[in-house]
Simulated scan of single mutants.
Amino acid sequence: MSTLDAARAAQAALAAEHAAVYGYGVVGGRVAPARRAEATAAYEAHRARRDALERTVRDLGGKPVVADAAYVLPFPVPDAAAAVRLAAVLEDRVAGVYSDLVRAAEGPLRREAAGALREAAVRAVRWRGSGVAFPGLTELTEPAVAAGRTAGRSPGQ
Results as ranks from 00 to 15, higher is better:
96 G>D: 00
105 A>N: 09
116 A>T: 00
94 V>P: 00
98 Y>M: 14
87 A>G: 05
117 L>S: 10
121 A>E: 01
101 L>F: 03
82 A>P: 10
78 P>T: 04
105 A>K: 08
75 F>P: 12
84 V>R: 12
82 A>Q: 14
89 V>K: 02
112 E>M: 10
114 A>G: 09
112 E>P: 09
80 A>Y: 09
76 P>N: 11
102 V>S: 04
115 G>M: 06
99 S>Y: 02
75 F>C: 12
115 G>E: 10
76 P>E: 11
116 A>G: 11
90 L>E: 03
90 L>I: 13
75 F>L: 08
117 L>N: 07
90 L>W: 05
102 V>F: 04
88 A>W: 01
84 V>N: 14
97 V>P: 08
117 L>D: 00
102 V>C: 01
108 P>L: 14
85 R>C: 05
121 A>H: 02
109 L>G: 05
100 D>T: 13
99 S>I: 00
88 A>S: 08
79 D>T: 12
94 V>F: 03
81 A>K: 13
123 R>Y: 04
89 V>N: 06
90 L>F: 12
104 A>S: 13
124 A>E: 06
86 L>S: 05
92 D>S: 11
116 A>D: 00
118 R>D: 13
106 E>Y: 13
91 E>V: 00
98 Y>V: 03
93 R>V: 03
119 E>Y: 11
109 L>N: 09
111 R>W: 14
93 R>E: 00
106 E>S: 14
107 G>F: 04
81 A>I: 10
86 L>I: 11
109 L>A: 08
97 V>A: 09
78 P>L: 09
80 A>K: 15
85 R>D: 08
115 G>I: 07
98 Y>H: 14
125 V>R: 11
125 V>M: 15
106 E>F: 12
100 D>W: 08
102 V>W: 00
99 S>P: 06
104 A>L: 07
92 D>K: 02
119 E>H: 14
77 V>M: 07
119 E>R: 15
75 F>I: 12
109 L>K: 04
103 R>N: 09
107 G>M: 04
120 A>I: 02
79 D>Y: 10
105 A>W: 07
85 R>T: 09
100 D>G: 15
76 P>W: 13
108 P>W: 13
119 E>T: 14
76 P>R: 11
106 E>L: 14
84 V>D: 10
91 E>I: 05
122 V>G: 03
101 L>E: 02
87 A>W: 04
103 R>V: 07
102 V>G: 01
108 P>M: 15
118 R>P: 11
120 A>K: 06
110 R>P: 07
77 V>A: 06
112 E>G: 15
88 A>D: 02
91 E>A: 10
107 G>Q: 12
121 A>D: 02
94 V>N: 00
91 E>P: 01
85 R>G: 02
91 E>W: 02
86 L>V: 09
112 E>N: 14
110 R>E: 12
79 D>F: 10
